[in-house]
Write a protein that binds this DNA or RNA. Structure first.
Lengths: 341, 341
DNA sequence: CTGAAAGCGCTTACAG
DNA sequence: CTGAAAGCGCTTACAG
């Protein structure tokens, strides 16, 4: 039989209201009474009933805003699906979830949108933050105001947040290098196609990849690194240029613009001749894997990311429950032909 | 503003009790009244509030029994962790979860334990069923009695169940073959160490693996298949015998007894000389990967399996919600050195 | 067959 | 600072 607030009230000789105030550190309780109540709760091993709490709190009308720099990026479709699932799961909690999407990585635009949202501030903000001092400063200022900030998929340092939910990018790059190491032999040359050196996660993948090559597979030589700006046209151009300049045995695509890059590979007649490792598993990448053009892709559980962003934020708002760790990394999943779905 | 039972009652001109009875198909409602209520609920797009429902139902004292053939198998430790997490998540629902564990795969023992549990029948039974006609018959008989049966980690055919939660074993075997194909070149010989031909999942892994070798990698020749009975001593013996009999370039361990098998590999001085693919990521296997003895291991999200077994069964008991599919397959995760955790 | 009322375990204006 | 009471949205004996 679970312990309830009523039992504590009886044992402490106070009303249930007072127990509630004491246990939730609400103001206006005599300090001694509060201590007494808390001691009894501890003695009885009291665990609040989350369901009852949620039902009672549903009157509060809490709101979560989600701000994504998702643009045209097909990868974000899965994050959206995860968010939808999370929303379905918390439907009965009376929490409103609103999603806003920006295209590109303009600092100005993100700052402006944040300001706009803050005109009627939500209770929590989930965001894919751009790694810029002004953004960080603004978010820190917001985080002061009794408003939880959660970073999703992209992280920044120096931000006082509830948590980050997303990929361990260093590990992602390391895993890509390990796979490339295992599927090759002898001295080989590899080129890296990243998105932008100014995006933390992209750079971490490059670093992780290069690090493992240097340390575990010195026979793998990173000959070139180019930026696609997450764009297929640019991806096409820089990949083509790279393939024309160097004699490469492998490519590592660690950001967007992959479709453009693959087009370049095909034009050079190199498909299935060079090894290719990518990230994520959008529909196009699945096809490249099925047709043997891409050897493996390192995925990051985007659905889980979207889902957890909603449920973990909800747990904080409803129960004041902090996530187990500050950085909630999703699994880096290596996918090949038969474990794609 | 979400639609509530009260609004429906007002609009239909009946009491909330009657609405509840009508919407939940409880007996003792005039058919016409019920139809009327249901039509209004549909019009208003009514979605029951799961939290309120859970709180009200917590009086019912539901029980879930979990029967595992986990024995000494270290793999099941993670399933247990998942079950614990699921239990923590549903703590407030007033549902009792009791776990029972058997060692080995004795049909008699499993039948006997089921009978014992049925003396005081739970509302749902989660089980790792042995693939035997008598077990299936008994479970089917139970499933008649308004009691949900969920198969966990092991599945059987011809059973009327709520769902199966676990690995897609065919895909697991296929994935192992694909990886082996990618990390090797030229004609190679491989030996398979399975658990038991009579355990469906083990056989499916062997079939999936052999199928991909035959179809996609005809240069990979499966020279031998031996059974470890999930036992390290037997695993050691049959692996040693296999290595002495054939000149092998690779081994695929697709069930228990791996530690014994690896011991044999070491004794033959073949570690790091032959490629090795395993399943799951118990602590020992993690070490083999770190030290480069095992190239990759195909995992099956055991924590998720345990967790989902609890939460999905709960969703059924509380809300009558059926899982999206009859077979809820977890992801086959390829793990190597840098994506182990 | 139907309704009024109590209850699930919390939270929170309101009165004192 | 504290308590009594109403409320969150369902479910369910009980009376009729």
């Amino acid at each position: 039989m679970a312990v309830t607030i009523r039992m504590i009230a009886e044992k402490a000789g106070v009303s249930r209201g007072t127990v509630d105030r004491a246990l939730n550190n609400r103001p206006g309780v005599n300090a001694e009474v509060a201590a007494h109540v808390r001691r009894i709760a501890k003695e009885l091993n009291y665990e609040p009933n989350a369901v009852a709490k949620a039902l009672a709190i549903s009157k509060r009308k809490l709101r979560i805003d989600i701000l994504l720099n998702s643009g045209q990026n097909p990868f974000f479709e899965k994050i959206r699906i995860g968010i939808q699932r999370g929303m379905a799961e918390i439907r009965s909690y009376g929490i409103t979830v609103e999603t806003f999407e920006l295209t590109g990585f303009s600092v100005e635009e993100q700052l402006h949108k944040i300001d706009e949202l803050m005109k009627e501030p939500p209770n929590a903000l989930v965001i894919t933050p751009i790694n810029d001092p002004r953004v960080i400063a603004k978010l820190n200022q917001i985080a002061q105001q009794d408003l939880a900030v959660v970073t999703l998929n992209m992280d920044v340092t120096g931000l006082s947040k509830l948590c980050f939910i997303g990929c361990n990018y260093i590990r992602s790059g390391q895993t890509a290098a390990e796979i490339l190491g295992q599927i090759t032999a002898g001295e080989i040359s590899v080129g890296i196609l990243t998105g932008s050196a100014s995006i933390l996660g992209h750079q971490q993948r490059v670093d992780g990849f290069s690090g493992v090559c240097a340390q575990d597979y010195p026979r793998i030589h990173v000959k070139a690194v180019a930026e696609t700006e997450d764009d297929n046209e640019i991806g096409y151009r820089v990949t083509k240029e790279m393939l024309c300049t160097y004699q490469l045995d492998a490519l590592y695509f660690c950001a967007g613009g992959i479709d453009g890059g693959i087009r370049a590979v095909k034009e050079c007649g190199l498909e299935k001749k060079i090894k290719i490792i990518t990230v994520d598993d959008t529909d196009n990448i699945k096809e490249y894997i099925q047709s043997g053009i891409v050897n493996a892709t390192i995925c990051q559980q985007p659905i889980k990311q979207g889902h957890d962003a909603v449920t973990i934020t909800t747990d904080w708002l409803l129960h004041g429950k902090r996530p187990a760790r500050k950085h909630l990394y999703t699994q880096n999943e290596i996918k090949t032909r038969y474990n794609l779905d």
